[in-house]
Design a binder for these strands. Structure first.
Lengths: 145, 145
DNA sequence: ACCCACATTGACGTTTACGTAAACGTCAAC
DNA sequence: GTTGACGTTTACGTAAACGTCAATGTGGGT
């Protein structure tokens, strides 16, 4: 969660491509163990060739989605909910209405997060400006090139 | 983390006021245990009258800050770092430069989060629009009044 | 046939963020 | 003078999200 770069080089390129677990682990800067754990939790379901897992482009996208959700502070259970939301039976009107309702709730949640985030960013910008000003007064370099 | 309303009725009102632990717990919709836990972790340091804790308006603000950080997915350790950032010795130029550097890193982090969040929101809006459209086609109510 | 890199499945350990008693003090109200 | 609301500390428990072995399998080069 610290200050790591957003290791998400989303290049959808070839939709036919398949990925090994190690490949995805490298790409997203997580361990293979983590990916298997997500599978145990029902977040991804790669095909199998015997025992080895084969990940499709869709699986890869899905994984990216999961990690983005994590960066936003959602629990795996919540992320699973959100992912399942897309794949429920959409035939019934009741299902659709429920989907709409849940979707709206999540949007509200996200918008609350955005307000929190904007407030946070503003405060830190203030800190930066003030500290930079203080440093300038003292004739020191600010760190800009 | 679910979909709870942002129980943060920040009314700075009287800066002299003191708050009991139960009062703050109610106001922020957390338990007293949680507040004491934050104290154990060094996130707040209320005065004491004998054994009982007395919280100032500043402590209250600080608590609000902590909870906002949590909603954004920061760990308590990270939040402590951020809070400490404000209260380090600002006399030395080295300290100021370090503060500026860290502050900038955190701003970058927050901006990454904002990009994640915007992407998430957009996707969910799409879901909402499509599902609402689908419902309309079928002649059902969308849930709007 | 042998090695090696990479894969798999448990099983257990760890950190974080609290919850949950247990056992007690304090003060106003009845 | 005890009941009840609120406060305290100490201590153990727990769910989530993985990490870390350990034992084993598997496909490809040489």
């Amino acid at each position: 969660m610290a200050v790591a770069a957003s290791a998400v080089p989303s290049e959808p390129r070839d939709p036919q491509r398949i990925y090994s677990i190690a490949e995805l682990a490298r790409e997203f800067a997580i361990t293979a163990r983590t990916i298997r754990f997500y599978e145990d939790e029902g977040l991804i379901k790669p095909r199998r060739q015997g025992l080895t897992r084969l990940y499709s482009a869709g699986d890869r996208t899905r994984l990216g989605w999961i990690l983005r959700g994590k960066r936003l502070g959602f629990s795996l259970a919540e992320i699973k909910e959100l992912l399942d939301l897309y794949h429920v039976d959409r035939t019934g009107v009741q299902q659709l209405r429920e989907l709409l309702r849940r979707s709206r709730l999540h949007i509200q949640d996200l918008e609350q997060k955005r307000r929190d985030l904007d407030a946070h960013i503003e405060e830190f910008r203030d800190v930066e400006i003030q500290v930079a000003g203080e440093l300038k007064k003292r004739g020191a370099e600010t760190g800009n090139d």
